[in-house]
């Protein structure tokens, strides 16, 4: 880690600020270049899933607790928004549901505190099983709490009164704002002691407890923040679709997609999940568009993923970062007298 002249690690680096600036510019400019609705739609889903992957990465990547239940909170966020803005209500302008999102996220985070406290009494692998159980419990409740969710018949939301020519744009920018918020948290984690504490939990939780890391509190709060963002994503998604069903709101495939995106791009990094979403979501949609009728797109989608995992098992970003680091150390001759075991993830360098 580069230290400042005073010996402290910097919060902001010139390259970090530049990367952030480029991302904001791309998020604003990119869709303007393509006026077609299907491209706006694809970009909306890419950015929404990128935000969820970055959020999942906080707990699944940095802390090493692979939650498979994030879709439960996605669904809760979706139904919370649907309950507040019922289809019978006519919106004077279309922005109220977006302004309500922080409250939806906060509600999901508060709900996650006791759940996380109980679920995180077990270690990472068992935690994955506990959280997938949570997802199926939430899905079952979605089907059966008919007064809130409408059951299998679904629930409608207020129609967004945006002009048809620009209908996708407010949703896209809401998702982009959520992505920047999630990335801001991930960036903050990598630049503070919180990031080191999470990495220590992932590496060896018992040892971390033994050197005074407040493991329980850190894990539970990180889980709450992670699912809070996921709940907000659910709210945007529900408002965009206008009508939601339990089988899609509490869909295990949502969790699987965001886990795959994170692993593909590189977990425990700020940019890895964004990269993974930027590859997988358009690939999935384009393959579905071109070869969707034959279902071959699912095989092609899996093949892309398997190929990258075969060639870059630690994810794209950590593989390249580690190679660049090793090359730089070999040039400086810093490798003498050390083991050459690579780090298991991208660490927290990017």
């Amino acid at each position: 880690m580069k230290l400042s002249k005073k010996g402290a690690s910097p919060f902001f680096t010139r390259s970090g600020l530049m990367r952030g600036g480029v991302l904001i510019a791309v998020l604003i400019v990119m869709p303007q270049l393509f006026p077609q609705h299907w491209i706006w739609n694809m970009m909306f889903f890419t950015v929404l899933y990128a935000a969820m992957s970055v959020a999942w990465n906080l707990i699944g990547g940095f802390a090493g607790y692979p939650s498979l239940g994030h879709a439960a909170f996605f669904g809760i966020g979706a139904y919370a928004t649907a309950s507040i803005f019922k289809s019978s209500e006519i919106l004077t302008n279309g922005w109220q549901p977006f302004f309500m999102l922080p409250l939806v996220g906060l509600g999901c985070a508060i709900l996650a505190l006791p759940i996380g406290y109980i679920a995180m009494r077990v270690r990472a692998n068992i935690f994955a099983i506990v959280t997938i159980t949570l997802l199926f419990v939430a899905q079952t409740l979605g089907y059966n709490l008919k007064s809130i969710t409408g059951g299998a018949q679904g629930a409608g939301l207020s129609v967004a009164p945006f002009h048809l020519d620009i209908f996708e744009q407010p949703f896209y920018f809401a998702a982009a704002t959520l992505l920047l918020f999630a990335m801001g948290i991930a960036y903050f984690i990598t630049k503070t002691k919180l990031g080191m504490a999470l990495t220590s939990i992932r590496a060896d939780e018992d040892k971390a407890r033994g050197v005074g890391v407040r493991t329980t509190g850190i894990k539970v709060i990180t889980f709450a923040v992670s699912v809070g963002i996921t709940g907000m994503a659910g709210g945007i998604w529900a408002y965009y679709l206008g009508f939601i069903y339990p089988q899609f709101a509490f869909d295990p495939l949502i969790t699987i997609a965001i886990v795959l995106m994170t692993f593909l791009g590189g977990r425990a990094t700020v940019w890895g999940p964004v990269l993974g979403a930027a590859i997988l979501m358009p690939a999935q949609q384009l393959l579905a568009y071109y070869v969707g009728g034959s279902q071959i797109y699912l095989i092609a989608y899996a093949a892309i993923f398997l190929l990258i995992m075969l060639l870059l098992p630690r994810g794209i970003l950590p593989t390249f970062l580690n190679k660049r680091r090793m090359d730089s150390m070999a040039t400086k001759g810093d490798l003498s007298g050390t083991s050459t075991t690579p780090v298991t993830t991208g660490g927290s360098k990017s």
């Binding site: 230290l3 503070t192 002691k193 080191m196 005074g212």
Partner: peptide, 15 residues
């Protein structure tokens, strides 16, 4: 990371 410290230190600079 083994240096310990208060809760609030978690939100301070990495090093």
């Amino acid at each position: 990371v083994a240096g310990g410290g208060k809760w609030t230190n978690l939100f301070g600079r990495r090093i």
